[in-house]
Structures are given as C-alpha cells and as structure tokens.
Design a protein around this nucleic acid. Sequence first.
RNA 1: CGGGAUGUAGCUCAGCUUGGCUAGAGCGCCUGGUUUGGGACCAGGAAGUCGCAGGUUCAAAUCCUGUCAUCCCGACCA
Length: 582
Amino acid sequence: MRWSQSFIPTMKEVPSDAEVPSHQLMLRGGFIRQLMAGAYTYLPLGVRVLKKAEAIIRQEMDAAGALEIFMPALQPIDLFERTGRKEAFGNVLINFNIRRGDRTVHLALGPTHEEVVTDLMSRHISSHRQMPLTVYQIQTKFRNEERPRFGILRTSEFLMKDAYSFHSSLESLNDVYQKMYRAYCRIFSRCGLDYLPVEAESGPIGGDASHEFMIPAANGEDRIVFCKKTNYAANLERAETGRKPPVIATSADAKPVAKLHTPNVGSIETVCKLLKCKPEKMVKTLIFLADEKPVAVLLRGDHEANEGKIRRALGVKSLEMASPETILAVTSAPVGFAGPVGIKCPIFADHDVPLVVNAITGANEGDYHLANVNVGRDYPLETTYDLRNAAAGDPSPRGEGTLELVHGIEVGHVFKLGTKYSTSMEALYDDETENRQPIIMGCYGIGVNRILAGLAETKHDENGLIWPLAVAPYEVIISVIGANETDTLSAAETFYGQLQAAGVDVLLDDRDLRPGVKFKDADLIGIPLRVNFGGKGLKEGVVELKWRTSAESQRVATADAVKTVLEQLTARRQADAATIPQ
RNA sequence: CGGGAUGUAGCUCAGCUUGGCUAGAGCGCCUGGUUUGGGACCAGGAAGUCGCAGGUUCAAAUCCUGUCAUCCCGACCA
C-alpha cells in the first residue's frame, strides 16, 4: 500500500477526550475514530491489526478442533426469558420491539450467544455419540454498557470470539477445556501479549472451572494478584491468601477503652481524618443479612470485604448488605457507628482483626467511636476467617512467596458452564444407558478488540505504538526520502514491488514530505521495520534498516536490501515463534 | 445512577471573571516561493450559526434557566 493512496490520518496533538495511552495512540496513529461513547470506527490500519489477530485466533481454534460457525446478532427475546438472563442482564441487554406486519416482535442484540448455540445444539444433538463438539464464531456483541470507558477497551459494541463445547461427560469437558486453555496461551503469545492466566470465579462447577487471561496494565479495569515465586495468579474476587488464624489473646499493651465524640463522622476515611489515625488502626464492622439473619463482619479498616468469601465462610446461600433499619436494630446506632462491643448479632472476623491492638471501632451509639478496643477483653472471638480481598504483601496460598497486586485487562475467559443452559433450554441427549441427560457445556471467549487495546496499552514508547511483527498493520514501512525526485521514487517503487512479491506486508511512504515528518509518523503507527530509502544513503549505494524496537539503524547495500529485509523478518518471526508454548 | 470537568475552525487551546468594534492563536489545509535525515521557513488564503433551545439586555461566546453531548472518579459489568 502506498501511504499517499491510503487513509491514515495521523495527528500530532493528543485529542482532549483521550486519557489512556492506548486510546491516545490509536487515535493519533489513525487506527480508530470515535462515533459516540463506546462505539468506534476502525480505519484501515486498525482493521488490518484486527484481521491479523482474527487470523491467529482462527488458526489456533481450528487446530484445537473447534468448528467455525456464524450466528445472528439479532435474537428473539424469549431465548433470554427461558434462561432467566433477560432479568440477569437487565439494562445491559439491548432489546426493542419492531413491527412485522400486524405483529410486534421483541428482539435483542446478542450480548453473547449461549442461548442461540444451545438452541442450535439442542435440535442437533440427540446422542452421546455426537459429542464432543466444539463450535466458535467471531462476531459483534452488543452490550449497553452503563459506562463505556478508555476508548476501545470498554465499548457497547465489540468483536468477540466465542466458542462453545458440548459434552456427555465431565472428563470430555475437562479435556476440551485444557485444549482451549492451551490454544488461548498460544493465541495471546502469538499476538505478542504478555498475558497472565488467572483463576477466576468458577460458578456452578467449582474447582478450577474458570480462568481469565489478563494483560497486566496500569489502566486495566480488573485487579489481579500473583506470586512470582509460586506462579499463583487469580483475580481479586477469587484470590485466596496464605494467612492463618492468629492466636486470639488480649494484648499485654491493651489500654483502657475510651469513648470518643465523633459527630456526623461515620466513614473510615472521615474518622481517620478527625482522629488523625491510620485506617489500619481501625476495625470496621459491616452488617450483612446472611440467609436473612443479621451478622457482623469485622475487617481491618484498610481492607475490602469479599462477599464470596464471606458467603462461603458462613456457609450461607444469600448475602446482602443490611438495610439502615436492620443496622439500627442490631447496633442501636445509625449507619457508620457499628462496632463489635456489645453488638446484638453473631460476629465473624477476618484473620487480621485480632492483630489490631488498641483498635478504634464504632461505639454502637450515634456520633461515638471507641478507642483501645481489644479482642478477648472487649469482645469475644473464637476463630477467624479469610473474609477480605487479597492485598499486596499477603502470603501466597501456596505456602511461600508473597502476593503482588496489579491491574489487568481481561482479554480472554475460559469457563466450564456445566448444564446451566442445557437444563433451562432442555438440550438433552441419550446416554449409553438410554437415559436423557442435559448436555454438559463449556464456553470460551476472547475480546478481539481488547487484544489491540492491550497491545497498545503495554507496547508503546514516547514516540508511539510498537506492534509485534505478527499483528502489525504492516511489517515493513519504506520511508522514501526525497520522494519528489523521480529517480528515487521509482527506485523505491521497485524495492517495494520486490518485497511485496516476496509476500511481505509493506507500506510505501511515498508522500512528498520532509524526512522528520515521515520518521515521526512511522514511529507513531508502530511499524516493526523501517527502511529509509533515498537521501544521502542512496547516493552512497545503501539503504538503512531500522527496527522500531532498536535505537540504531543498519546500513545495507541497496543491492542486498531485499534479501537482508527478508532474512531479518524471518529471524524475527523465528525468535517470536520460539516463545510460543506448545 | 451519584460526584467532578469540558463543549469556541479538522486538532490543541485563548477570549467568559467585569456583556460592547469585523471572535483570536498554534498545528493542519489551499496557493506561490525558499528548503529537505527526526513533526522547516516566508508571503498570501480558505475555514467557526462560539453544542442546542429559551430568557435577561439597546447589545450575549461572555449573565440566567433548561437541555444535549463527551471525558474522568465511583456504583454496575453472563
């Protein structure tokens, strides 16, 4: 492609609406343009990267035995009513009525395709002999995001590769799950992403039934913990800690309890400000309704409650924050002044709570807090639990090492669904004993746009984007210096034609601009290998090769240029391939 | 949905507090010339219903009310 014939609108200045690097650089490099909040047009460069990522996904999915299909984005609403997900999705599900003759048809735009694919397979599969079967598609999904964010990262309309597998046994599901997991590792690795598979909330099946593939990035929306030493990695909701219940005893340093007047000061933050203390000196008391009964959950002031852990620790089905009325009944105080001392409900404390000596807590009385509260003396406690989100510095659950906390971009998710959809949609098969059984399912998603966002977010420098060779919009850019000289330009065109003939994705910057502008643009759009063609080099019979990732350029005799470029591209591809897991 | 910010030329922004000539600058764009190895220079030019609607006023980009849009923080996110 010749730059002069293409549509690559680069920008020198940073658009004011873009905050995060990936958004700024993709805008500045002419990869995307915004239509409205959460909807972007992909310009030629953006489309090329998307297509390359898609091609990698297709290759790996095909190799893993999945079959490509293509399902409608338009779906009848009753499918979602049957699985209860119309309710579950709520406002996120884009749905509307249309007129068809004298009828009204209620449609949804697919936020995902479990219902459609289960419906499809329920009609097709009748015997265990027809399984396992895995299908996938790459298709646009629609979700009415309450808050689209960070450019391309969180949009209302996005490209997703979604795969679904169908099984007559858990062993078969586990087998395909492993194949998909491996395919995902290969896909993200081939795309040049530094990814981290993390344990995620596993839903109905439990165990290791769900993994998310995360790109550690400062602007990621998810939080993940990992341990370098033991390779433990999990998302924050799921992450265990290696903490143990401490010895519960009143400290020898316990001071007498003091009652402090804290008018209208009910949050940890404001109490700390008023009393000039740190949140870790406080114990916060959260009142929940666990299976309809009020309980108090104690956490150190700077920690975050984890409702999943609390639910499991208490062995209850439902858990919700208590209403102000319940809090008043249990604590005799309005919201913000709850404490363990004298509270009228069972207490469950996190492991770190008994370790806070002379803690500050609510006084169970409006506008008052207590100082120097100590376990044993002031409130009873038999044991402690892991009730909070993991934090940086916690011990790894695998016995050694400590956890680190980083932000991440979720680019993929593999999930053992079980029979959730097959049961509600009556997708049944006959097993070996002629009994009807619900089909066991797995689902596996990849956010294709997020591969671009993740790369742009993590692979750039002050000059612009740095695409890995495998997904770069073009592998090579020829920056013609002195493109207004006919001889130079025609020599460059010959070189360009030779690279094209050799199967290289090459962009010819034939614009009649000053060299500086062209170099800046080439760096901005992040083409891996640049060839400076013309100028002083050409007079001496050489061209310059410069990799985007290296500071120096190499001078190569013009006659050897094609051969050298091909050799270096091959070498780079091989080096990249060496890092891909089997 | 709660909190905060912004809307003036394709892009970045000034002007608004204290209303008053024909609404400005830089970049980009067009014409001509000089330049040509990391976002050149000179001269000339085109380009804006000041987000939209209503109000106050002799007079509104500027003040008031409403509304829409975008961004950020939070809540939400199979």
